[in-house]
Design a protein around this nucleic acid. Structure first.
Length: 255
DNA sequence: ATGGCTGAACTATTCAGA
């Protein structure tokens, strides 16, 4: 079973890329973020034609998440039942006996801002929800755009980013606490090449200069981590014309 | 210190992203 996450930064603009990528990478489950579409505008027919069922929850302009799956999607939950939120950032579903959460963590904008406070509160509530979901489901995976780089090796220039949004200590601490529930970063289960990132700024040739951050993650419960045989970041779609600023992360789960 | 891109919205300029 292959599972993946990708912040597409507008599903309307990126649908051709999504379909092209799925054709070359027929993963079983794909969590996408920043669809930026209300549900009535969701491209359901195109995704079904590509061989995927899909659960989605969106809004105008911002946020929006979806889970695409080759297998039936069961027990869908939209948003965190423990956190009142207008913003559509979370979707849970059971697929093939595995409980999935697709997450689009708030950006936070700037350390100390209202959005930063919201990010940390949102994340704390997420942790409480994940704890409950993990008690109910031994096979659990949470994939998405965390907007947090866990470690210095996940940042192109740690000195430049130290204390800044995506790499501040409270954010990294919150991610560590979440992982303390018994979740493993699938990417770090394996030896990886250096300087692997999942996001690059559109500006100043950041991708070409590999000035990026690794902020998109696949976290696996112990049961799933033991079955995980590979995890890679696929930089290819970032090279395509009019790309998302994020690129897919893919994990392989054995039987 | 600011802007550098990109996408979406009250098509022209602002907001937000990261």
């Amino acid at each position: 079973m292959k599972i993946a996450t990708w912040n597409v930064n507008s599903l309307k603009v990126r649908l051709p890329h999504l379909l092209q990528w799925l054709q070359a990478n027929p993963v079983d489950v794909l969590c996408i973020q920043e669809t930026k579409l209300t549900d009535d505008k969701f491209p359901l027919a195109e995704i079904n034609e590509a061989g995927y069922q899909v659960a989605y929850t969106g809004q105008k302009t911002y946020n929006g998440v979806a889970i695409l799956s080759k297998l039936p999607i069961e027990d869908v939950v939209k948003n965190n039942p423990r956190f009142e939120d207008e913003q559509q950032r979370l979707l849970a579903a059971t697929i093939g006996g595995v409980r999935f959460i697709c997450a689009y963590v708030p950006n936070g904008q700037e350390v100390g801002s209202d959005k930063y406070v919201y990010k940390l509160a949102w994340f704390k509530a997420l942790q409480e929800w994940v704890a409950a979901e993990m008690r109910a489901h031994e096979q659990f995976a949470i994939l998405g755009d965390y907007n947090i780089a866990p470690d210095a090796r996940d940042v192109h220039d740690p000195a430049e980013w130290e204390g800044r949004i995506h790499f501040s200590l409270p954010e990294r601490g919150a991610l560590q606490e979440l992982m303390g529930l018994g979740l493993s970063d699938a990417f770090r289960l394996f030896e990886q090449p250096e300087k692997q990132y999942s996001w690059w700024d559109y500006r100043q040739l950041a991708f070409r200069r590999n000035r990026g951050l690794r902020i998109d993650h696949i976290l696996l419960s112990e049961k799933l981590a033991r079955r995980c045989t590979a995890c890679v970041i696929d930089r290819e779609p970032r090279k395509w014309e009019q790309p998302s600023d994020h690129t897919p992360v893919v994990a392989t789960i054995g039987d």
